[in-house]
Design a protein around this nucleic acid. Structure first.
Length: 827
DNA sequence: ATGGTCCATCTTTTT
DNA sequence: GATGGACCAT
């Protein structure tokens, strides 16, 4: 009857069929965890549980979307759309939007991403007259964030003895004060950072009993994915939400806990069993993903960790091939090897691009692979890096939109108050900030009341024009949809036109990004119910004015064709959760901040996937390259100081190994570029933890054909001599191109040589006298005081401001503005 | 006020 | 090797 149960093993069935009461599923890698979760939700619904009463929390939007799709596939009745499935952050953001007023926030609160948040920290540090060389915004922010993840308030932080001791020891006693100031500032800005989305949710449930009971009654069944990666804040929220019905189901694998840097703690798994009287525990130990060899390696490696929940992963899959261990001389060769191998495997075994993944410890490692793949003409997709919405031009545009919805958002205001330049420079901005702080009003309020603060006439006019402009934009919110408002803003502010007129490669790309943004807003508006919700304005916000004339569309401004291969903007609707019908600009803005790179890219495209191991959690690939297995890189130098850190690195290694279904390569390079300079690394200690019988080392030999056979440790000689260029190196060079020192200097033909930044100083001739250059012509030889001798290539620019392009013997081509620079005409 | 150039710092992982 | 900040020239 219930055919969705077919194809489940006994353990899986047990988990699916358990309906009421707390349930903990310990799911080994590749044991069908997602299948169990989705089937369980489908089963709940088949048993009569209303979709509206089910809450499922995941760690990525993508996981949420996929889960919903799979449930719909099982049920096929359209009910899945009513489920409340999403990431912790996006689900809570949506709830808080409706409840913000209770906590003193505007419903259109801005969500600050990490960059925004760090800027606030920096502002605060500077205003406190602290040295931001010592109080590095990055470091301070991380410390604050860790505290927040552990539900430690600024006050508790200041009063906690051991925390204070720590800060004293690092000579940063003011962090507590910064924390406090930062918190106040965000509140004043009407903004929440990522951590606030959890904390405020917690405060809402904790301090407002009616809110608590409302959501407890709504969410009768709660499911949590990747439970091993929850932090204390998330844990407390789940505990509160689940307290009424105790129908909480958590799925996790302690061996895959890799987010402790974000405050996650495995303790939550152990604690779960203590929180409820009768927790049913189901262990999924059969792996359906990988070959026996791969699984053996994974089990072997993880056994080097001390504390873990007892379980044994097994598989009925074939033994498979041995894991290939590959050594290369440099990071570039590593890239070349991987690209070569992918090409070869595609031909020999009929793999597609999408069967391959290149996984690494740090984002910076992607470059070498990127270059090699491009050279081979293999299509690839990089995940990680900066998301579409973090690009500068996009953030600027978004900043305009944010202000319309929340004028107190100081960070966004500062971003665009003088972009494009409108005569409100740094000095003025500092004065505005001062006035805001002295009068305890917001940045925006100072602008509105600029007259009272004695700005210079020109500045005052510029400010008043700016305020007028923003207000006129904001007046559209009540009757125009997000797309219309965004278009209008783009046209009126001139900054899109500036980008349009910039014909450089980057300029064109930026312009296209803006277009893409506008398209995505349009899509988002159209895919919704079509109703544009009126924006609720704050009393200190805008005056809503009456209908204004539509500006006619300007020719050529938005008429370029959209690139056909664009997959960066997927249907925005998919990202929404169940009962979302709010199509206001405010709702749009809150969503996009929570989107990541992975949400914007299609996983189905036939491309090789490049990403960090963290980003690869939960995914699987036919062929996996685990790259950069070197000491200091993986395990990372930052994480080898305590056993806990090292064990987490090892779990990370476990994760990368278990991503592979059929084939696994482990690669490492003797040397690689870091900070632009070459460094040497020993092979990772994790390599030596793999029993030899599982390894194929035919590519790792090279320089190690000595009596002791393979040795992951380089000889003392090799270390002392920094690798050198011995016989093995020359062999490798033959196969994989020149070593980095040389290959680095090769500039691709299609790029003109980069202008030299370093000026080779020239001592002017004793007879140097500047000539009259008003009739300068191409072909003439000239001397420049700094750049030396050269030949005029051409003279361009206007008659008022002629510019000569001169090719100097020592310093290459330079543009010389004849009105200012002094040139001596030699001939 | 603006815009360009030079220097320091950064890199662990992410919602 | 990039990015933001400081500094300088216009």
């Amino acid at each position: 009857m219930q055919d969705y149960l077919q194809g489940l093993n006994e353990r899986q069935k047990e988990a699916v069929l358990h309906i009421d009461g707390p349930l903990m599923i310990i799911a080994g890698a590749g044991s069908g965890k997602t299948k169990v979760l989705t089937t369980r939700i489908a089963h709940l619904m088949a048993c009569g549980v209303d979709a509206f009463n089910i809450l499922a929390l995941t760690f990525t939007n993508k996981a949420a979307r996929e889960m919903k799709e799979r449930i719909e596939l099982i049920l096929g009745n359209g009910e899945a759309r009513n489920l409340y499935i999403g990431t912790f952050h996006s689900v809570f953001a949506r709830i808080l939007r409706g409840e913000a007023h209770r906590l003193g926030y505007p419903s259109n609160f801005t969500i600050y991403d990490t960059d925004d948040a760090k800027n606030v920290v920096k502002t605060v540090i500077n205003e406190m007259n602290l040295d931001d060389k010592h109080y590095k915004p990055n470091t301070v922010y991380n410390r604050i964030s860790s505290a927040k993840n552990a539900l430690v308030t600024a006050e508790e932080y200041a009063n906690d003895y051991s925390i204070q001791q720590e800060d004293m020891r690092s000579n940063r006693p003011a962090i507590a004060k910064i924390f406090d100031a930062y918190t106040r500032r965000c509140f004043k800005n009407g903004a929440m950072d990522f951590d606030d989305l959890l904390i405020k949710m917690y405060e809402l449930l904790k301090n407002f009993p009616d809110a608590l009971s409302k959501y407890q009654r709504k969410f009768k069944y709660i499911l949590i994915d990747e439970y091993q990666d929850t932090n204390p804040a998330q844990y407390e929220i789940i505990k509160l939400l689940g307290a009424m019905h105790e129908n909480v189901c958590v799925v996790g694998d302690d061996a895959q806990s890799i987010y402790s840097f974000r405050g996650a703690t495995i303790e939550n798994i152990l604690q779960f069993q203590k929180d409820y009287d009768d927790v049913k525990v189901v262990k999924l130990e059969q792996n359906y993903r990988s070959t026996q060899n791969i699984l053996n390696v994974a089990n072997e490696v993880i056994s080097h960790n001390k504390g873990q929940i007892e379980k044994t992963l097994f598989t009925e899959n074939t033994e498979g091939e041995r894991i290939r261990l590959v050594r290369t001389m440099s990071d570039n060769e590593e890239g070349k090897f991987v690209a070569d191998t992918i090409q070869e495997q595609k031909l020999r075994n009929h793999f597609n691009n999408k069967d391959f993944a290149i996984l690494y410890r740090t984002n910076a490692q992607s470059r070498a692979f990127e270059e090699a793949l491009r050279r081979m003409g293999i299509a690839y997709t990089i995940y990680g890096g900066i998301s579409f919405y973090q690009r500068k031009e996009i953030k600027d545009y978004i900043a305009y939109l944010r202000i319309l919805v929340n004028p107190n958002d100081e960070e966004s205001l500062k971003r665009i108050i003088n972009y494009p330049a409108r005569g409100i420079g740094k000095t003025s901005i500092d004065r505005i900030l001062l006035a805001a702080n002295e009068n305890n009003i917001s940045f925006w309020q100072v602008l509105e009341r600029a007259r009272e603060f004695g700005f210079k006439a020109g500045t005052l006019e510029a400010i008043e024009n700016f305020v007028l402009m923003i207000k006129s934009f904001a007046s559209m919110l009540g009757h125009k949809n997000a797309y219309e408002v965004a278009m209008h803003v783009g046209k009126q502010t001139n900054f899109v036109r500036e980008l349009f007129n910039d014909k450089s490669t980057e300029g064109v790309a930026r312009y296209e990004n803006i277009q893409e943004l506008l398209n995505s807003i349009k899509e988002w508006v159209d895919n919704g119910s079509g109703t544009v919700m009126p924006i609720v304005m704050d009393e200190d916000g805008f005056i809503i004015e009456d209908e204004e004339e539509d500006t006619p569309v300007e020719e050529g401004l938005f008429t370029r064709d959209k690139p056909a291969d664009d997959n960066a903007v997927e249907s925005a609707e998919d990202k929404n959760i169940a009962d979302d019908t709010d199509r206001s600009l405010g709702s749009y803005l809150q969503q996009i901040t929570l989107l990541t790179d992975a949400d914007e890219k299609s996983a189905d495209a036939d491309t090789v996937k490049l990403m960090t191991i963290h980003a690869a959690k939960g995914l699987e690939f036919g062929c996996v390259f685990a790259a950069g297995l070197e000491e200091n890189l993986f395990p990372n130098a930052m994480s080898i100081n305590t056993r806990e850190e090292l064990e987490e690195e090892r779990r990370l290694f476990y994760v990368v190994v278990t991503r592979a279904k059929q084939k696994l390569w482990i690669t490492y390079a003797n040397s690689r570029y870091r900070f632009g300079s070459l460094i040497q690394n020993d092979p990772s200690r994790f390599i030596s933890e793999i029993p030899e019988e599982y390894l194929d080392k035919s590519y790792a030999g090279g320089g190690f054909r000595n009596s002791s056979g393979f040795s992951p440790q380089r000889s003392a000689f090799e270390r002392m001599n920094g690798g050198g260029f011995g016989n093995a190196e020359r062999q490798a060079e033959k196969r994989y191109g020149p070593p980095p020192g040389r290959s680095k200097t090769a500039t691709p033909e299609y790029l003109s040589p980069k202008p030299q930044n370093k000026v080779i100083e020239h001592t002017p001739s004793a007879s140097f006298v500047a000539s009259d250059t008003s009739n300068l012509k191409a072909g003439q030889k000239v001397e420049h005081q700094k750049f030396g001798f050269g030949e005029v290539i051409n003279v361009e620019g206007s008659a008022q401001n002629p510019v000569a392009l001169v090719k100097f013997e020592l310093n290459g081509e330079k543009k010389i503005m004849l009105n200012y620079a002094k040139l001596r005409i030699v001939s």
